[in-house]
Simulated scan of single mutants.
Amino acid sequence: MITWNDFEKVEMRVGTILVAKDFPEATKPAYQLIIDFGTEIGIKKSSAQITNRYSIEDLVGKQIIAVVNFPKKQIGKFNSECLVLGSVNGEDIVLLTSDLKVENGLRIG
């Protein structure tokens, strides 16, 4: 069990995917994403293994939920700056999204 204080340390924010492209250097099939988290957080990059369910065209303009306060993670030559969240069933990942369009950068809590 974690405490409420532990939960509050995880900074989950809404962002809009601006760019999605193939990531052929990744060990498992993945996309490179560029995500807008609004003026306070700004633009961040992420790698996401979501190729089973989503095409690049599906992703651009989609609002997603991501953890934005993890340290950067080097994945090959790519520097991932946030963790895009989704429900996971083996290799099948469904992104966590907002059912209504909201302001980029809103905190999830």
Rank of each mutant, 00 (worst) to 15 (best):
E40C: 01
A20Q: 13
I41R: 05
S80N: 03
R13C: 12
L83W: 01
D6Y: 10
P71G: 00
D22L: 06
F23Y: 15
M12N: 15
V60G: 03
S98D: 05
V102Q: 09
T16Q: 13
P24M: 11
V88I: 13
I41F: 04
I56L: 14
G90N: 11
Y31M: 08
L18T: 11
K28S: 12
I35N: 13
I43G: 10
L18M: 15
F78D: 05
K9Y: 00
T51E: 04
N5A: 15
Q63M: 03
L100T: 15
K101W: 02
E8H: 10
G38T: 14
N5F: 05
Y54I: 04
G42P: 05
K44N: 07
T27W: 04
D92C: 05
Y31F: 15
K101H: 00
D99Q: 12
F78P: 06
E81L: 03
K21V: 07
V102G: 09
K44H: 11
K28L: 10
L33S: 12
V10S: 13
R53V: 05
R53F: 02
Q32H: 09
S46D: 02
F23H: 12
K28Y: 10
Y54M: 03
D6N: 15
E11M: 03
T51I: 05
G38W: 07
S47L: 00
K28D: 09
N69L: 01
N79I: 08
E40F: 00
T51M: 07
N89A: 10
C82L: 00
E57Y: 01
K72S: 06
V67Y: 04
V88M: 10
V88S: 12
I93P: 08
F70W: 07
Y54S: 08
E8P: 02
V88Y: 00
I65P: 05
Y31Q: 10
E40H: 08
E103D: 11
D92R: 11
F37A: 10
W4K: 14
G86P: 02
P71T: 01
L59K: 07
K9I: 03
K9E: 12
D22M: 08
V60T: 12
